[in-house]
């Protein structure tokens, strides 16, 4: 135990560099997946067949490819096509695209859960599609969507570790590098696990808060 604390003090600063990158990757891909997910969901519920079918196939293609393969594709294959991305860019882009499919399905479920009478009421006062979405449907869908959205945040935090496979030195990779050079596997990976857990707990509490609020109505 004493050894663990000594190791912890020694490795903590290096691991914190990893934490910083983990947060950058998570936040970056969360934002990207949210925007893309909203776009896919809007296309899906637009009522325009071509858009809705395009979005449905996109979502299925994205869902059908493992995140790690998507990352390899962006980082190793794109340069052959003339697009060179830094490891960090590829990680954010890859995770963002991968998770946009889940976000889209979540958003769509939230939008479709809104009572049809709400949409008719909006139409009956002359609102068009976009105004109905913006003023009536989306504000109500947010309440429904937030709890699962919080869960996606937790999953993305953990899945940001997959960026290690394309050399982004986030928390998991920092841990692996320290472990392989010091052989202090137990200390290092316990520390890494605890640090992920520490970052997850505020998110878990946030989800609980969202769920309570959604249950109120």
């Amino acid at each position: 135990m004493k050894g663990f604390w000594r190791d912890a003090v020694e490795f903590f600063p290096i691991l914190m560099n990893g934490v910083a990158l983990t947060i950058v990757v998570t936040v970056g891909s969360l934002l990207l997946s949210t925007v893309l997910g909203l776009v896919w969901a809007m296309m899906r519920v637009s009522g325009i067949k071509a858009l809705s079918m395009l979005s449905a196939s996109l979502i299925n293609v994205i869902r059908g490819i493992p995140i790690i393969v998507l990352l390899f594709y962006l980082y190793f294959v794109m340069p052959d096509l003339g697009v060179t991305l830094s490891a960090l860019q590829a990680a954010i882009l890859g995770l963002g695209i991968a998770y946009s499919a889940y976000q889209a399905e979540n958003f769509r479920a939230g939008i479709e859960a809104i009572d049809k009478g709400q949409i008719e009421a909006a139409q009956s006062i002359g609102m068009g599609w976009w105004l109905t979405m913006r003023r009536v449907v989306l504000p109500q869908a947010v309440r429904i969507v937030l709890p699962p959205y919080g869960n996606v945040m937790i999953m993305m935090l953990k899945d940001s570790s997959q960026a290690s496979t394309i050399t982004v030195a986030e928390l998991a990779l920092q841990g692996k590098l320290i472990a392989s050079s010091t052989f202090k596997n137990t200390s290092v990976f316990t520390l890494v696990a605890l640090m992920y857990l520490t970052m997850s707990i505020p998110l878990i509490l946030l989800v609980r808060h969202f769920e309570k609020r959604a249950g109120k109505r």
């Binding site: 009572d115 009478g117 008719e120 009421a121």
Partner: peptide, 8 residues
């Protein structure tokens, strides 16, 4: 409407 359909 029959069911009011106010924006809650």
């Amino acid at each position: 409407f029959q069911r009011f359909n106010l924006f809650p």
